[in-house]
Amino acid sequence: MKAHDLEADPGLFGPGSVTWQVHGDPMMWVAGVRALYLQALHPRAVRGVMQNSDFRRDAWGRLMRTADFVGTTTYGTSEAAERAGARVRKIHRLLGAVDPETGERYGIDEPALLLWVHCAEVDSYLHVLRRSGYPLGDDAADRYLAEQRVSARLVGLRPDDVPGDRAAMDAYFEAAVPELAAGAEAREVDAFLRRPPIHPLLVPARELLWRRVARLAYDSLPPYAHALYGRAAPDPDSVSRRLRRAGAVLRAIPDRLRWQLPPKHILRAMARLGPGARPAPYKVGPPVAILDGPGEGSEHIDNGGDGGRWRSPG
């Protein structure tokens, strides 16, 4: 590594973090769609989105802006990440929503709403990656959630108020479920994700590719989400097999090819920090001693992930 690389800013997480490794995985796109499905089930949160954004005509743009924020805060410099967070906090402070039934006006930067959006997002990342075969053990999963308190701070939350391990995240969702509902806004998000409006020439691609991604993301939701959306929950083992197949196919695409897509956050980070900053799954767990036998010296890995919530009855 060059001398100037040693002085380069590693950002808020750095190449030694779990976040740095997992956010480079291609299954993050499936996880991002799952997060949208889950976030839409909080009536106050989704109302804030629908009343303050052009989601109906610019849902793709919203998804790309979210991906850009995650990429910047993960792989950008500390200054770039803090600037992105400040921009999000400023926008949130200026916006509000109105409950059509009560007339109540509330800010979309309410801590409870920000917390729901954050937890639904990072939980989806963790769930989809582990269930699709990414080698993320229990300890590494807890480290990831602890690291994501940094992301929570950037959007305006107090890190101590955010679940920092799997047990705390499980407890959070258990308490949040009674507040969830599939209202009109949630069903609009659902309808869009299942069949987004696109140019007629792209309809075949939507049927071939997007609907598979959206269905896989939806099917990976927890049982209570399927119940709220009003569709029968699929067989969990079948969904896990499909997630593993999708993960195998996407991970077979060379990293350098995937990372060429704009805005090239990972390639820019590697140019800044050197080739040793390349994200890779094998960097997540602790080093394995040469004399360890098969399965020794490594964390227990449960491809179900998420404390088994996807197997629970709801």
Rank of each mutant, 00 (worst) to 15 (best):
A191K: 03
R311M: 15
V189M: 00
R272Y: 03
S240A: 15
K264M: 09
R149A: 04
D58C: 02
R83C: 09
D54T: 14
I301N: 03
P135C: 05
P15L: 09
P279Q: 03
A232L: 15
A252F: 04
P196C: 10
H118M: 08
G61A: 06
S78A: 15
V162P: 00
L36R: 12
P163M: 07
Q39G: 01
Q260R: 15
L113R: 00
R268A: 15
H42Q: 12
P275L: 06
P204T: 12
E179I: 08
N52R: 13
H300A: 14
S78V: 12
L221K: 03
L180C: 02
A81I: 08
R278Y: 01
A191P: 00
D5T: 12
Q21F: 04
V189L: 01
R131K: 11
W210F: 11
P178A: 07
R241Q: 06
F192N: 08
E299D: 09
R47E: 07
D255L: 09
R244M: 11
L136N: 04
H226Y: 03
W310E: 13
L94V: 10
M28H: 02
Y144S: 02
K90P: 09
H92N: 13
E179Y: 11
R166A: 12
R212K: 14
W210E: 02
A277R: 06
Q148C: 08
D5I: 11
G285E: 14
E121A: 10
H226C: 06
L136S: 08
P204R: 13
F173D: 10
P236A: 14
G133A: 02
K2M: 12
R34F: 13
R244F: 07
R256I: 11
P279L: 03
